[in-house]
Amino acid sequence: MDEITSSPDEKAPPRRDVTNRRAALLATLVAVPITVAVAGFTFAKLAPDAPAPEPSPSATTARPQSTAPVEMAAPALAERPATVCRALMSQLPDTVRDLKQRSVTAGPEQNAAYGDPALTVACGGTEPAPAQTDDVWVVNKVCWYAAEGPDATVLTTLDRETAVQVTVPRTYGAALQWVSPISDTVIATVPSGGPTPASCAG
């Protein structure tokens, strides 16, 4: 039986180069993330700038408000009330809590406004005669009568020579908390109108 021997000229089947495959795989793994990163950077550069988000209101940021003049009436005042009201307006604070003072359409010597919706201060009106003592409050030594309306609470002094009226929109919550700094100015500029009403005593 003839023995079959391979000729030295015959080539053996090619062997896979394991080292070359590993190198190619490693190069691919490195190249793909770099390509993705470059593409993302290019897209970000070419994309239009998005507008910055509006800051949301918080306890430390003042609420946005209109700066337009607040419409208020300015009835004619006698000489003495007009003098007292000018003194009051000149000493009112620039802000009431976080509400900034705004201009008014009439009578800046007797009217003031703060915030949006507007909290208003009017000087020189007539003091009411409250039917119930439950609606009378003393805030920083000033006697106030509170009249509740559908959209606002109207607070009017009861113990001053010239009446001062503060209208607080319901959106601001408890009205009495807003008249504290105003009460301090009333005490300093509007003389007492005589004995404190019995409804404010005690």
Rank of each mutant, 00 (worst) to 15 (best):
D17Q: 06
V96Q: 02
L155N: 03
V32T: 01
E54H: 11
A27L: 14
Q110H: 02
P197K: 12
R160T: 15
W178R: 01
P8Y: 12
V30N: 00
L46S: 10
A50K: 13
T171Q: 08
V166P: 04
T157A: 11
L155R: 03
E54C: 04
P169M: 06
L158H: 05
V136A: 08
A27F: 09
V186T: 10
V70L: 12
W144I: 01
T28G: 06
S7K: 06
W144P: 01
G202W: 11
R97Q: 13
V84H: 04
A175P: 00
A59L: 15
A23S: 08
M72Y: 11
V190F: 07
T133S: 10
P197H: 09
A147R: 08
W144E: 01
P51M: 12
G115W: 01
T171N: 05
P53A: 10
K11S: 13
A122I: 03
V30F: 04
G107I: 07
A47F: 05
D135E: 03
L176A: 11
K100H: 05
P117H: 00
L25W: 05
A73C: 12
T133F: 04
P108E: 05
L46I: 15
K45T: 09
A146Q: 06
G125Y: 02
V179C: 07
A31K: 01
A147C: 02
D49I: 09
V121E: 02
P150D: 12
A39C: 09
A118L: 01
V30L: 10
Y145T: 00
N111C: 03
G193S: 14
F43W: 11
Y172Q: 03
C123I: 03
T60M: 11
G124Y: 01
L46P: 00
S58G: 15
A31G: 06
A201N: 13
A52M: 15
Q177D: 12
A106P: 04
K100G: 02
Q65E: 03
P181V: 09
A52D: 13
E71G: 15
Q177A: 13
